[in-house]
Nucleic acid binder design. Structure first.
Lengths: 244, 244
DNA sequence: CGATGAATTGAGTCACATCAACTCTAGTGG
DNA sequence: CCACTAGAGTTGATGTGACTCAATTCATCG
């Protein structure tokens, strides 16, 4: 665990309000590790051993069942994941793999739990983190059940635009087939959906999308504060913020 | 707030571990109220004013957007809901309405927050509650994205069966059109899906379903501990446990 | 440059939605 | 006790969004 990484972690909502002794004790035990791309960090069904924090690179959460697989979300720096499994001492409901090379800080769950019990402010922060994660998945469920695939794509593009400071030009943070899976469609269908938006309100060059008619795009997506993830700090997550 | 309701509340995971003074102070402020059926208890977009606890009857959580509406879950006694909105001090992401006559205990959010700050054990319990709620929605997202509609129905029937102590005979706790919406399909399609299961492994008389070939039903649903809600205490919730 | 995997495109199919008609059931009032 | 009614549930016909499969193009990299 390098000293220069600590201030960054300290700034995380989860660690911001905890006492310095608790933070320091966690940092003493924490270790950071670099992983190459496409490495399975955690496997669904296994028990939580470490709380993970992404420092660099990005990590994809996905779930599989009966030979099918779907992307549940992507974690970008600096964010924690699988907090819920740590708190519940229960098996992971999702797998996680690195998309690019990633530096991950890991804190043993036992120590996290001790810190939670000792430091009420940390417990409060964890509570808020989980509440936000909960709300994130409520949003995702709304999105899946209420919007069709083109509407979801349009909403995603607007989300990325807000993320880039309301710029009309965005660059996809992940491959299209991953985005397709996240949005609950096949790569072929995403391709067709993009094409149909190109006729309307979008120009596309590879991973770069440029919004040419924002009004039209908003007509399609009907952005809604109860469904679309708010953008807290600029340029952080690819899909959505997921706490647990 | 009647005295005979308190022990029941005290037994809830959320209130079980808190100190007696904290519990008593909350109970002093709490008020219970009876509502007729089909009453809108909370509306999505409004800010949390009270933490709600269902004592009797059942409450449906639903979300609407652009004229479409979908059932997100149903709360049965004795459970809390909208904890997440209380914790975050943010607008509700879902609406709630009574399905039948219902008795609801309401605690002002301000008092809940004071109690959270004062009583670390309560904060820990709230954290666990939210973590469980988070995991519930992860499960729901998995279910929606990985299973098709017949598989979801089959899994739901098996879930209800487990809930009834692994009985082969279950009775739907809600109307079919609500179930259809919860499962992410139209009433017509639910009807057809039920029919196709009747050919295989089910007999149906109104709201009563009897499993005639459990092996076949399990083949269809492929029950999975990472997707299907565990049944904690017998006969409690209709769809799934939702914390926030 | 080939080679590999991603992205796109088109054709055919399937799952699911829509619309409309009909049945069934429960509740109401004569 | 029996029409009558209203709403849930079912059924069938039809339409459409989305998936599958196969072929092709495109991008990236050794």
């Amino acid at each position: 665990m390098q000293d220069d990484e600590k201030p960054e972690l300290r700034r995380l909502p989860l660690f911001r309000e905890m006492t310095t002794p608790t933070f320091d004790s966690l940092m003493q035990i924490a270790c950071s590790q670099s992983f190459p791309q496409q490495v399975e960090l955690i496997r669904q069904g296994e028990y939580a051993d470490f709380l993970h924090i992404v420092i660099e690179g990005s990590v994809e959460l996905h779930a599989s069942w009966n030979g099918r697989d779907t992307v549940m979300g992507v974690i970008h720096p600096v964010s924690t994941f699988i907090l819920a499994a740590c708190v519940c001492d229960a098996p992971y409901l999702m797998s996680a793999r690195t998309l690019e090379c990633a530096k991950i800080v890991m804190i043993p769950v036992a120590d996290v739990r001790v810190a939670l019990r000792r430091d009420p402010d940390f417990a409060m922060a964890a509570m808020r983190e989980l509440a936000n994660g909960y709300r994130g998945f409520v949003r995702q469920t709304r999105n899946l059940k209420l919007r069709n695939s083109i509407e979801r794509l349009a909403a995603y593009i607007l989300y990325r635009s807000r993320h880039a400071g309301d710029s009309d030009s965005i660059v996809l943070p992940v491959e299209k087939r991953h985005l397709a899976s996240y949005l609950g469609m096949t790569p072929e269908n995403l391709s067709r959906s993009i094409k149909s938006l190109q006729a309307d309100c979008l120009t596309v060059q590879g991973m770069r999308f440029t919004i040419t008619d924002r009004t039209r795009l908003m007509e399609i997506a009907s952005p809604d504060s109860l469904m679309d993830e708010p953008v807290e700090s600029p340029a952080k997550s690819a899909f959505s913020r997921l706490a647990g």
